[in-house]
């Protein structure tokens, strides 16, 4: 032990939180997937959510997805905002009748005591203009803090969900900060130290990453090449769609979406153009979803 701060004085470590959620949802029969290996703004973009929300086949899965939101970068100076953070995503299709109870079970599993904490389901309708998707649900509050987004998908890629999937998105850093009682994300205990290997904080791992990535996102990224990358992803997506390959087409849509987010962070997209770009990405995503439906022989 070299770090003076006892990392797990209160609540479980960041990684223990993930492992506990994995165990819990694995026990509920979920497929535990690994993160998708592409940059994306939210776990909802993961094909295990987007594409699997379509069609009649049952699908229960849980996974961690690193989420990148370039405009949220604060050079490592804000204790609550990051341009790269983790979402824990659970997708259950069709939504089970006891989804709320299952969800509350997961909170109990990570140590939240319902006799001392105030859990609330507060209206929050979800919409993703870039995915042509929407759903109804809540943000779940724990003592006034939003810890989870809880959504019943109604449409994805412009198609009605038949049947409806329930989606849970936990903000892992927030939840961990809450459980550990720390005020800065960088103070989170990441591991459970043992032997001579010291406690590692979230800041040890990601602070420098936030500083450098914020600098790149906001100041350095070459906008010419980004515009070019957007064009190329768009063209590649269309090529895949012509060849009836919805999965690679969808990957290019994810890519275009992320490049668009980077362009936004560089401040080179005017308000007027913004809608046009979002519309472009939506067309790609919708096209991919349509191709996926067609490939599987599902009627809209």
């Amino acid at each position: 032990m070299t770090d003076s701060k006892p990392a797990t004085a209160k609540g479980m470590s960041f990684q223990r939180l993930i492992l506990t959620l994995h165990d819990y949802w694995s026990d509920q029969g979920c497929v535990i997937l690994q993160p998708y290996d592409m940059e994306m703004g939210a776990g909802t973009f993961h094909p295990a959510t987007t594409l699997r929300a379509l069609g009649p086949d049952p699908w229960n899965a849980a996974f961690v997805q690193p989420s990148r939101r370039p405009t949220d970068g604060r050079y490592g100076e804000n204790p609550n905002r990051l341009q790269h953070y983790y979402q824990y995503q659970v997708v259950l299709k069709p939504s089970p009748p006891n989804l709320q109870e299952l969800y509350l079970g997961s909170l109990a599993a990570i140590g939240i005591d319902f006799t001392k904490h105030d859990i609330r389901f507060v209206e929050d309708d979800w919409e993703s203009p870039t995915l042509g998707a929407w759903g109804l649900g809540w943000e779940v509050w724990c003592d006034g803090m939003e810890v989870t987004q809880f959504t019943y998908f109604q449409q994805m890629g412009g198609f009605d969900c038949k049947p409806v999937a329930g989606e849970l998105t936990y903000g892992l850093e927030r939840l961990a900060m809450y459980i550990q009682g720390v005020d800065s994300v960088y103070d989170l205990a990441f591991n459970d130290p043992k032997g001579d290997f010291p406690a590692v904080t979230y800041g040890n791992i990601y602070h420098e990453n936030e500083v450098q990535m914020s600098t790149w996102n906001f100041e350095v990224a070459d906008t010419e090449r980004l515009f070019d990358a957007f064009k190329k992803a768009t063209a590649e997506c269309e090529l895949c769609l012509e060849n009836k390959l919805p999965i690679p087409a969808y990957e290019q849509a994810i890519k275009a979406s992320h490049v668009f987010n980077l362009l936004q962070a560089r401040g080179v997209i005017s308000v007027a153009e913004r809608q046009a770009y979002i519309g472009r990405v939506r067309d790609l995503a919708k096209g991919s979803c349509a191709a996926w439906m067609e490939k599987n022989g599902w009627a809209a």
Binding site: P94, S95, P97, G137, Y152, K162, P163
Partner: peptide, 23 residues
């Protein structure tokens, strides 16, 4: 003002709609 479908019966878009799942 806004209603939704849910659960196994939502395989059909004709299924019951309510503001949130009716229990």
């Amino acid at each position: 003002p806004k209603s939704m479908r849910w659960g196994a019966t939502s395989s059909s878009t004709e299924s019951l709609r309510w503001v949130r799942p009716l229990q």
